[in-house]
């Protein structure tokens, strides 16, 4: 359940619905909302990698 909650939070943060519609912030060549989206995606990748390796070890491992 905890993992599901983390993914739900990441999903909510990944979609830029909360950014002001007229934001013109540009950082490292990307619009600010794109950077936040990329960061969330990297976080999702890290969480997935941890989840893959933290699950109970299977018999063949």
């Amino acid at each position: 359940m905890g993992l599901l909650l983390i993914y739900l939070i990441l999903l909510c943060l990944g979609i830029p619905w909360y950014w002001p519609a007229d934001s013109t912030l540009v950082w490292m060549g990307f619009p600010g909302w794109v950077i936040s989206s990329i960061v969330v995606s990297i976080l999702a990748s890290i969480v997935t990698a941890i989840a893959l390796h933290s699950k109970a070890r299977a018999p063949d491992e």
Partner: peptide, 18 residues
């Protein structure tokens, strides 16, 4: 070939979208 292999490959895959 094994579950370990699958998990390692998927871990690499998790970082490929960026």
């Amino acid at each position: 070939s094994s579950l370990k292999t699958l998990k390692h490959s998927m871990t690499l895959m998790a970082f490929m979208p960026v």
